[in-house]
Design a protein around this nucleic acid. Sequence first.
DNA 1: TTGTATGCGTTATCAG
DNA 2: CTGATAACGCATACAA
Lengths: 341, 341
Amino acid sequence: MKFETVTIKDIAKALGLSTSTVSRALRGSYEISSETKKLLLEYAEKINYRPNPIALSLKERRSRSIGVIVCEIANNFFSQAINGIESIAYNRGYHVIISQSHESFEREMVTVQHLASRSVDGLLVSIASETTDLSHFIELHEKGLPIVFFDRITNEIETHKVVVNNYKGAYDATTHLINNGFKKIAHITGSPSLSITMERLRGYKEALEANNIPHDEKLVQYCHHNGMIYDEVEEALMKVMKGKNKPDALLTPGDRLTTSCMTALKKMGKKIPEDIALIGFTNTNLADLFNPSLSAIRQPAFEMGQVATELLFQIIESKRPVTDFETRVLETELFIRETTK
Amino acid sequence: MKFETVTIKDIAKALGLSTSTVSRALRGSYEISSETKKLLLEYAEKINYRPNPIALSLKERRSRSIGVIVCEIANNFFSQAINGIESIAYNRGYHVIISQSHESFEREMVTVQHLASRSVDGLLVSIASETTDLSHFIELHEKGLPIVFFDRITNEIETHKVVVNNYKGAYDATTHLINNGFKKIAHITGSPSLSITMERLRGYKEALEANNIPHDEKLVQYCHHNGMIYDEVEEALMKVMKGKNKPDALLTPGDRLTTSCMTALKKMGKKIPEDIALIGFTNTNLADLFNPSLSAIRQPAFEMGQVATELLFQIIESKRPVTDFETRVLETELFIRETTK
DNA sequence: TTGTATGCGTTATCAG
DNA sequence: CTGATAACGCATACAA
C-alpha cells in the first residue's frame, strides 16, 4: 500500500457507522440526522478526508476533467488559448488535461484514445496538420463524447466549432498592404491540409482580385510543419525571394511561421519593413518589438479558448443529445503601426 | 451508460470463459493453454479491446502517468522543458499531465493535491514564486510520492533536483558586459523568493566585485511576477533608468522578463544596444531577431526536462526507498553576438 | 434515518 | 489449466 490515504471506510469504522451513511453525509444527499451529519463532517475535516477521484471516475464514468489537444504548447496562440480554457473550466470545478500532438497523426490518435479511456468528460481539439483521417474522433463522437473543435476544425464532424475569421483576417491584411502601395505580396503559409490555411489563402486571393492584381502561384509557399521546422520556412522564403517576381511584402499566418520568417529574413540581411514589408498573424507579445511591418493581425486566442470551453460545457451539461450545433466565428484585429511605404 | 466500451467481461461472456482466464491471457501471465490464449487474443484484437486505465489505477494505485507543474506554459523555457519531459516519458509508456500554477500558491496546492489523488506515479515540479510554505510537497514526499524539482527548487526537501547553473550564467554574462566596456550594469530580476533569482544575483554581484566595480543596490530591481505582468517590469525599469546612476547595460534573467524589458525599452525610445546593452537569459528563438545586446544566455531547457524525468524514473522504478539524492547542475551557454561597445 | 448488498473493470488469491 | 471470489473506493437501490 503506497499511500495510506483516508477512505470512507476508515471514517465509518472510526465512528461506528456504515460506509453508506458516511457517503451520504459527505455528499449531503438524503436527509440524515443533522447530528450524525455534523459529527461526520467534522471528523472528515479533521482527518483531512479527500474523496478518491479515481474511484469516482470508475463509478460514475466521468472525471470532472476535460482534455485539450493542440499541436504545440510552445506556440503563443495555443498557450493563450489554453489559459482561456482553464479560466472557464476551473470556475466550474473541472480540471484541464493538456496534450500535444506535435502535428503527428499517430500521436494525436494515441493521445485522444488515452484521454477518452481516462473518462474525460469532453475534448477540445485543434487538429494536427498531418491528420486527414478523422475516424478516431468520429468514433468517439458517435459514442457520445462531447467534442468541440477550435481553430483547426473539420467539416466531417457535426459539433460545435470555434474559429477565427481567417478569411477576413487575410483579406484585411492583404488589402492593407495593397492600400499602402505594395503589389507583389507573397504568402508563406502553413500546411494545405489545414482548414485555416485554405481560409487564409482565400482571403489573400480575393483581396488581390478585388484590387485587380493578378495572382502569381509562385508567390504562395506552403510549410507543412507550420513554422516549427525553421529550415522549411527558410527554404520556402528563399524560393519566393529568388523567383522572378520578387515580392515587396509578405503575408504570414501563425505565430511560429511569422517569427521563423522574420528570423530567415534577418539571416538574409533583409530589413523589415525597409526591404520587405511583413504582416503576420501573431499573438506573440514580442511582435511589438520587431517592428515587423506595417501592422499585424492579432488573433483572439484567449477568447477562443473561453468560447470553445463554454460550448463544450453546453454539450456536457445538456441532458439530451445536442443537435443544433453552431460554428462560432471570432474576428481578428488589424493592429496598424505604420501606414506608408 | 455513456460509453459502451468493451470490457474483459464481454470477452468472457462471448467466449464462454471466466474473466480471470481472459485477464490472464491478455496479460500473458501464468501458462494457460496456448490454444485458448490465441483465441482470446484474436478476439480481443478483433473487437478492439482496451483495458480501462481507471480500473487499473484504482486497483494498482498507480497510473503510468507523471504530473508536471510549472508556473506558465506560455514561457518558452517551460514549454521546451515539457517537450524534454515528454520525450523521455513517452518512450517509457508514461503519460504526462501538464498543469500551471500561474505563480499562485493556492493554485499550486490544489493542483498538486489533485494530481496526487489521481495517482500520478511521480511529480516534476518547478515551484511557484508565491510559494514559501512547502508543506503540501513535504507531506506527499513523506508519503512516498516521488518528486523531482527542476529549475525552481527548494532546500527544504531531500530529493533529486535539477538546476541550471544560474550563478555561473549570471557571472559570465556580467563579466562579458564588463569586458566589453560596460560598467553600470542594472539587474532587473524576478521574485526574490525564488532560488534561481538569488543565485543569479550572487553571480552578478561576484562578477562586479571581481572587477572592482562597486555594487549599487538601486541598480537591482525585483519583479515579483517574473515578467508576466508587463507593467511591473516597466516600472522597475523606469526606476533604474531615472535613477542617478543611469545604467549602460542590463542583465535580465528569464524569458518573459527579458522580452518585457525589451518592450519597455522600445516604448521608452531606447535602442538596443546603442543606448543600452542587454543580456538576457532566454530560450525564445525570437531572441535572435531582437539583436538585444551583445549576447544572450541560453538555458538548456529541453535537456533539463529530460534529466529531471530520468531522475524521476530512477525513483519510481527503484524498489527500495531512494536515499542518495543528487542535485544535477546544467550549464548555460553564452551566445556571443557583438563584442564591442 | 441507517445499514446491506451490489457494481464500476481489473487482477490476485485460492480452489478445483 | 481454469474458475469463483474478493478487493481497490465510492455511490446507490433496496431493505430494515
